Computed example of a mutant assay.
Amino acid sequence: MVIIRDVKSLREALREVRMEGRKVGFVPTMGALHTAHISLVKIACERSDYSVVSIFVNPTQFGPAEDFERYPRTPEEDCRLLEAEGVDLVFIPTRSEMYAEDETITIDPGVKAQLFEGRSRPTHFRGVLTVVAKLFDQVQPDLAVFGEKDAQQLYLVREMAKNLQMPVEIIAGPTLRELDGLALSSRNRYLKKAERELATVLYHALTAGVERFQSGERSLEAIRGSMREAINEVPEFEVDYFTAVSDADFEETDPVSEHPRMIIAGRIGSVRLIDNLCPSA
């Protein structure tokens, strides 16, 4: 496994790979890898001839009051896990390698980025799409794998790739969960023991919405009402949003779309968690 830290060397290494006609699969990450990340890596390895994983804690997707400084950084352990999976190349750039000091150009994520996560984190998706666009240009992958747990991010990355005619296939990796339903996340390690037990409220609310939909209900108010009942069971949960959106365009509709995705976000203590669930999952 090759570890590269600068863009010039990355481009040179991948130029040779492409000259050999090999299909490049890519997984962008912020490190602190866990089983869910590795599941995305497995997809990339299975569907490509040459696998690339990036590790970069992207400062531009964090707001001023968020956890950029304390976000877990475990590059040595991450590389050990990736090597065990047979990854070919790991790209670990510095901030200065990714961003010039006088940089002013960014990706406008559009109006859909102002909804849900965008209301709570107004600069988040601009930062996400800008760094993903940079990484796509640097790696030039044939395919890239993103997790469904960050459903709005996945939707916006797909829209960016389509709208900007980027020649990359975006593949969704399914959300992995603990036995009690909590979605795997790097931020779960911040949860105290009591908070960890309460954190299943997100999954319970999502399943309440899904079950109401599967019973034949299509009223958005009624489905949200079932989700609210589950949320009210855990008063410690400070909810940001919860609703059902169309999986096709990430918009609320009433009646609810025939292909909905239940979404939820909020805080338990100081830890902000997000999750989503489709009836077909």
Rank of each mutant, 00 (worst) to 15 (best):
M1D: 03
D6P: 03
L10G: 10
L10A: 13
V17F: 04
V17G: 05
M19R: 15
V24Q: 08
P28M: 05
H34F: 04
S39V: 04
S39W: 02
S39I: 03
I43S: 01
I43Q: 02
A44S: 14
E46V: 05
E46M: 10
E46D: 15
V52T: 06
V53N: 11
Q61S: 05
E76C: 00
D78A: 03
L81W: 07
E83V: 08
G86T: 13
V87D: 08
D88R: 04
V90W: 09
F91L: 00
T94P: 03
T94N: 08
R95S: 06
E97C: 09
Y99W: 02
E101R: 06
E101T: 02
D102S: 13
E103R: 15
K112F: 09
Q114M: 13
L115G: 10
E117Q: 08
S120L: 13
R121K: 05
H124L: 14
F125W: 03
F125E: 03
R126M: 13
R126G: 10
V132G: 00
D137M: 08
Q138R: 11
Q140N: 01
Q140Y: 00
L143A: 08
E148C: 10
K149L: 00
L154T: 08
Y155Q: 07
L156C: 07
V157R: 09
Q165E: 12
P167D: 12
P167F: 07
V168K: 04
E169K: 10
E169G: 02
A172N: 01
G173L: 06
P174G: 06
T175R: 09
T175S: 11
E178D: 11
E178F: 07
L184C: 14
R189V: 15
E197V: 06
L198M: 14
T200C: 14
A205G: 01
E211C: 10
F213S: 02
E221K: 14
E221T: 11
A222C: 06
R224S: 06
M227S: 12
E233H: 06
F237I: 06
F237E: 05
F237Y: 15
F237W: 10
F242P: 00
T243L: 00
S246K: 02
E251C: 15
I263V: 12
G266E: 11
G266T: 13
I268L: 08
G269R: 08
S270L: 12
D275H: 09
A281M: 03
